[in-house]
Design a binder for these strands. Structure first.
Lengths: 202, 202
DNA sequence: TAGATTGTTAATCGATTAACAATC
DNA sequence: TAGATTGTTAATCGATTAACAATC
């Protein structure tokens, strides 16, 4: 449908990373530079950008700021995105403290936990809230993406709740596949799976 | 060379997850069940297992324990794997506390940090050690895989050190691509990249 | 013009899948 | 035997890449 393949989408952040490094310092960048940075073939880069209908200049390269804008627009991150973290355990706390998120345009605007002892405490400048407050916050536009850092057994029910409130981008750190309706995107990051795959190649 | 594709390797952990749930309860499993659990096509499952030269029984299915063994063997996780965590900041600590690792055969045997205040403290039953102790620990076989939870600017130098000491499986949580010699496997998990991709689909 | 680099074609490669004979 | 399910073929689909004309 949208005509841009998943393989291409997954490379866009890697291009963007180089572009953001270059911004201010270089006017243009070549497909070759992008290829090296992203660890792919230069023809692949040109094909990707051509899929975005983004044009470069022969003999010169691609405009760094324009390409950055184009990719950010494609990814839907022209403006800052508001993210909630669900679960303020070890992992949720670690993720909330990670400043690399803000640097790349993602603001953690809310953190929720079910533990009454944890509620009210602050991580950085965000206060941990009761899970019950989540639906209302979401409705008021406090966030529209969520990072799941809850135990496996809570993952599906929390997901259902998030989806119900209109969140349609979920990054799931719980070690279970959650199911979501059409139109909602989930990506799962699973430590053991990563290590198992690594084990094969290492 | 080894004849089993990356696409196949990346599905093996998903099959294994179902198999481990089923172990004890069911003797056999069908390609269809595996397919549903892994979110792939049943023909794809059969092709994968056939690539492993693992045979099922027509009309019956695949032996749950044998297939589990076969996949564990292929992934190199028949016996427990020993893992070091480098960096005892928020993320390193969260990962060290995560009990899902031990459950899936990965033992965190060492944690290192450069912060003298952190050294000597314990996470679970593992004491944080000085970075300088890492090479010797590695040589003695204390671990042979590593999880990098250090700042971006330290990632490459720590990687070089790990590689030098013989580690050839590295899971990198630092938001930079590290380069390694042939034969060393690295996988990178990057939060912003995940969110950017999610943003596209969500 | 000469050198650089894009944009695109066509070839190649690899992975997925429908379909069905084999066989438990 | 009848029903279930594998193993494999052949078709399809999709992604990568070498190569080069176009053009700055």
């Amino acid at each position: 449908m949208s005509g841009i393949s998943h393989a291409t989408v997954s490379r866009l952040p890697r291009y963007l990373r180089l572009l953001e490094e270059l911004e201010g310092a270089h006017e243009t960048v070549s497909s070759d530079d992008l290829a090296v940075a992203a660890g792919v073939n230069a023809a692949n880069v040109r094909r990707d950008l051509s899929d975005l209908e983004f044009q470069g200049t022969r003999g010169v390269g691609y405009s760094v700021p324009s390409l950055g804008d184009r990719i950010r627009r494609e990814l839907g991150i022209e403006s800052r995105r508001l993210v909630a973290i669900i679960g303020a355990g070890n992992l949720g706390t670690a993720l909330a403290r990670y400043d690399g998120l803000a640097k790349r345009g993602f603001d953690v605007t809310a953190i929720y936990d079910t533990d009454p002892n944890r509620v009210g405490q602050s991580i950085g400048d965000v206060q941990i809230q009761r899970m019950e407050d989540m639906p209302m916050d979401c409705k008021v536009g406090c966030f529209d993406m969520a990072i799941l850092a809850v135990p496996a057994n809570a993952a599906q029910s929390v997901t259902d709740l998030l989806v119900k409130e209109g969140v349609h981008s979920i990054l799931n750190f719980a070690p279970v596949r959650v199911s979501v309706p059409e139109g909602v995107a989930v990506r799962q990051v699973d430590l053991s799976t990563e290590l198992q795959i690594l084990s094969y190649y290492g």
